[in-house]
Design a binder for these strands. Sequence first.
RNA 1: GGGGGGGUUCCCGAGUGGCCAAAGGGAACAGACUGUAAAUCUGUCGGCGAACGCCUUCGGAGGUUCGAAUCCUCCCCCCCCCA
Length: 422
Amino acid sequence: MRSETGFTTFLDEMKWRGFFEQCSDEDALYDLLSAETVTGYIGFDPTADSLHVGSLLPIMGLVHLQRHGHRPIAIVGGATAMVGDPTGRTELRRMLTLEKIEENLLGIKGQLGHYLRFGDGLQDGLMLNNADWLKDFGYLEFLREFGHHFSVNQMLARDSVKSRMEHGLSFIEFNYMLLQAFDFMVLNRDHGCKLQMGGSDQWGNICSGIDLARRVNRQEVFGLTFPLMMTAAGTKMGKSAGGAVWLAAERTSVHDFYQYWINVDDRDVARFLRLYTLLPPESIEKLESLTGADIREAKRVLAHEVTAMLHGDAAATEAAEAAQALFGGGGGGDAEGIPGSERPLADFDGDGVTLIDTLVDSGLLGSKGEARRMIRQKAVRINGEVIVDEMRSLTADDISDGRIALQVGKKRHHHLIITGAG
RNA sequence: GGGGGGGUUCCCGAGUGGCCAAAGGGAACAGACUGUAAAUCUGUCGGCGAACGCCUUCGGAGGUUCGAAUCCUCCCCCCCCCA
């Protein structure tokens, strides 16, 4: 366990960093945390084989827990994913097949491994699948054992449910709260877990779990929620040009991931440094004092730190160098980290290939119509030169230094790496 | 089960037989400005096509009509009230 967190207690750090939204019993939790190694958990949804930036906040919550000598548990909701979660959603979540969920679990597990230390030690994290204790549990058995512990009146009063009343809420979604409460109770019973954390939208579910653990296990357990993360612009965390920003490099390249953080709103930098990096308070405060264009320095630190934690220092440095090459002016620089794809030299013989087609199949643009529009708007460049001819083709003449640099707008870059040139 | 109101392009939301690929707003993207930020202004915003245009889309399936998002039939889903 590392001790150089710069904070005396977990809760102090969580507060300073901006994770602290609401706590079921702060004083009692504070005492508990200073008295023993506390096991705390957060649930993640295996709805895809990768987590995205939106999950980074809870992940960091577990990271801090572990850094302060406590034990994190990550629950992947294999069972709950089969059911769907009403909280904050307007639509019934798509149900997944068991095989798909299994596959997603593996991917997520690998990603959490970048952040948390798992193992058998006292403070080593655990990753559990709630399907293990839910999937063979019979309906009648559940009703008989636990049904009387839940008050429908109370459930209906939960904000998460109330907000869904207008648009409709199926019974299956309504049950999500019960399952999550059950998870907490089981974790408390079997693993001594006494803390559940989560986004503020999980508050109701967490409270249900606290109640159930008290009634069934006669244990006092706690809940701690994080604020709902929105960008300064009021959009959901983790959306970029290409959609969601994923943690998996196959879905969001290291370059794009790094760019996401470099491009955050000025107003978000300070907050994000606190939430998404492990930098000590002195370093962060120093960066926070920057103003005007100097804020870019803080963004560089933010992007590097966050990228390095996920993809490793080397990859983060490469992404930073690519960014420098593309945006640092003066051109040149290291092209290694710039997204690209390989093309055989033969493609560029004679008339070559059309620019429009290439923009589409390089993934830079979605359709030929869009490619045409972009060219009309003077947004497309080949090797830095603005292209105005929609009919333009790429030929051997465009190859420079073994590659052709394509660019759409100011920020989207793609290099065609020419192979077979000998 | 009965009655009423709904399901429109990424989202919200107009549109009730041709002038609708479908108003308006938001989001998004691009250009200018800038600091790879914000704000602002301008433009774009289903697919194919150089273009005339063609194709796909208005919950689903049929039908009426020269012509349907708009009319009819059946089906699915949601909301409200009653049972």
